[in-house]
Design a protein around this nucleic acid. Structure first.
Length: 223
DNA sequence: GCGACAG
DNA sequence: ATCTTGTCGC
């Protein structure tokens, strides 16, 4: 029998959330070599409307090497967890998981808006989603949560390691020439080098990789 | 105690 | 994240 994704038993406060992170972090795997994008890649993003009262989760599935969207799902529900740095997944994943159940395609890789292991407890939203779905995931964030990195060169493709105490947890990657770089880190079942290569391979002239860019656009159409 | 702080 | 119009530059 397939292990099901549980939206129930969701923590209702930070102390409970912290326990969940501690127990699930051990399941995170940061090994997994990818030599190019798999056939089906999903992009996940979440938007908020009505002053944050409503959470809107969007998922777009692109097929490679063509790179076009073959399926998209958008789901909205009342927001029930506040935003606190370090606990973003508890606010955004409930809606994402419902949307995921409506998906017909079976993505082999998921790119999420937010951090992967580049998190205080190595359990950002991409890692959390990866463990719940038991699928490879990558965190693609537009700004820093933790870690240090020197500014990479101005050209697309240039990058520098994002580190914390000598240990690399991801990359500061320039995905578009002369545009602010992205914070990329493995979520689950993807190694550090592959996380960078895959985000670059999924890029299409914009700062965000196409899967995440399309999901971002869809979530903002507010449906 | 002070500063930092994904979306 | 969201509130918001036009505008400068590659």
């Amino acid at each position: 029998m397939e292990k099901q994704v549980f939206t129930e038993n969701w923590p209702s406060n930070f102390s409970e959330a912290k326990v969940v992170q501690a127990s699930m972090q051990g399941q995170v795997c940061v090994t997994g070599r990818f030599d190019g994008l798999p056939e089906y890649v999903a992009g996940v993003d979440v938007a908020f409307r009505d002053g944050g009262a409503i959470t809107v989760a969007a998922i777009c599935v692109l097929v490679y090497p063509a790179g076009h969207c073959v399926e998209q799902v958008c789901y909205s529900e009342p927001t029930r967890f506040p935003y606190v740095p370090g606990y973003l997944s508890f606010r955004e994943l409930p809606a994402v998981l419902v949307a995921w159940k409506q998906l017909r395609a079976k993505p082999q890789l998921v790119m999420c808006d937010g951090q992967g292991i580049a998190h205080p407890r190595r359990f950002g939203i991409a890692s959390h989603l990866g463990v719940l779905l038991n699928l490879p995931t990558i965190g693609v964030a537009k700004s820093r949560l933790i870690g240090d990195a020197t500014e990479p060169g101005k050209n697309r493709g240039e990058c520098n390691p994002l580190t914390v105490n000598e240990e690399q947890i991801g990359w500061l990657l320039r995905t578009r020439t002369n545009v602010k770089p992205l914070y990329v880190s493995p979520g689950h079942m993807v190694d550090i080098p592959s996380s960078r290569d895959l985000v670059l391979a999924a890029g299409n002239g914009y700062r965000l990789p196409e899967p995440t860019r399309l999901a971002d656009k869809l979530s903002k159409t507010r449906t």
